[in-house]
Design a binder for these strands. Structure first.
Lengths: 238, 238
DNA sequence: AATATTTTGTGATATAAAACACAATTTTTG
DNA sequence: CAAAAATTGTGTTTTATATCACAAAATATT
């Protein structure tokens, strides 16, 4: 596994063309010509393969990462085992919480699909926050949304049984991540279990059940949702 | 129960003296004379009794609340039951996530001890974010810390057994909330159970166990921690 | 102070999901 | 391409914790 130790300084890599970037974040849309120039000079774009680590818990944090496109998992080394706490797709900023006020990363992030990421020097990013109110505003909006989503995810995890949680995850991949009823799971059964706080065995069993019940079409990691209405019922009532 | 429907407009109440406030937030310390004057005119201070609601899920959100002192619980109406998602003490901003980008509150907050809260008009707050980089910066720092704490709390909830979670909660109240080894729990057994995802019966049982084992001294809601080392052991190993 | 209501403690029972075990399949590697 | 490693499916057993039941205690209400 390739680990990208995230130290990016002025012109360390070829600068991307931030000014004409097709994937500008809501915040970056408020940057003026000068600021975008500054960003270009303090930012490096990287292509990530599935499995590439983006930042690692415990390591000195020095960049904010803007994931232009792709899918990532966030995870924490817990007491006994690693735990996936979030799966997200670009465009999105990664690691603002773990970089902004922390010396060392408090969690890790790894690409779980081919992705494009821009590593932005933290001081440059902070400059924008300090000097561009609209930029700061949009960053706050994104952080607020994250917190609310996390609250609701937390409730779901504790108030639903496994069938409900598996349903939720299948719908999440369908509606949020892939925007399609059929997709290839980016996780092993083990990781899937970890993600929704259960075991690989339970995941296997539930997916087989859903397959037999005609709710999904299952073929290894390939999932096709046949009866989304039913899946949403199960999400609510277990 | 008193519900304070949070609409605060210019001079609706007697203005507090923000300029000389002893409890200024890290962010507010960066406000200049003019801005503090503006804050005074768009802010109302309220004394809250135990049980007073601060804002309510589903209701139009129009204020950021700054809890100068006191203790609050945040909770969400889940699928089947209400769930406490967080307990915090002042000084702290409440409801930035639920107010900043949301029309309606996505969760509720209630005082669980005598508290003092300032209801700040959301537009005034947003003005500060837009025009004062240092203010925005500090708000971002607070939001980032919240997210990381939430991640770690989430891990604890899923990787620990009930004894471990009860230990965690007892330590949390001791070290974070009351800063003392003896305190009066601000929750019923039922709420305590809800807070750490278990039942009132389990809470009763575990507290009785801890009492018998000489780890705590238990008398109704009064808790005295006798052996914190042991409690921390249990927090780790169940 | 007396009554009603809520909260709490604790034993007995039920149950969902974890853990275990092992074979089958798929993927990775040399 | 063959061997090794990792992943997956499924039956059986175990276990932690929820649920149920009911009395005792504490708190709130009149």
């Amino acid at each position: 596994m390739f680990i990208f130790y995230t130290f990016v300084k002025k012109n360390m890599f070829n600068s991307p063309a931030c000014k004409n970037c097709q994937f500008k974040s809501a915040a970056a849309k408020f940057l003026n010509e000068d600021e975008l120039g500054n960003l270009e000079n303090n930012c490096a774009e990287i292509e990530l393969k599935k499995g590439d680590m983006i930042f690692k818990q415990g390591i000195l944090s020095s960049n904010i990462v803007y994931l232009k496109k792709g899918i990532v998992k966030f995870y924490i080394e817990g007491l006994y085992k690693e735990q996936i706490i979030k799966i997200a797709k670009g465009p999105i900023y990664l690691g603002i919480p773990t970089t902004f006020d922390e010396k060392y990363n408090r969690y890790s992030a790894t690409a779980i699909a081919k992705s494009n990421a821009c590593f932005i020097d933290i001081d440059t990013f902070k400059e924008f926050v300090q000097n561009n109110g609209n930029f700061a505003y949009e960053i706050i909006v994104e952080l607020c949304r994250n917190e609310i989503n996390l609250f609701h995810k937390y409730i779901n995890r504790t108030q639903k049984n496994i069938r409900g949680r598996v349903s939720d995850a299948l719908i999440f991949f369908s509606e949020i991540i892939y925007e399609s009823d059929s997709y290839k799971l980016p996780l092993t059964r083990n990781e899937f279990g970890n993600y929704i706080d259960t075991t690989r065995e339970s995941i296997s069993r539930i997916l087989t059940e859903f397959n037999k019940e005609g709710i999904i079409n299952l073929e290894g990691k390939k999932i096709e949702i046949l009866n989304k209405k039913q899946l949403k019922m199960i999400s609510k009532n277990g």
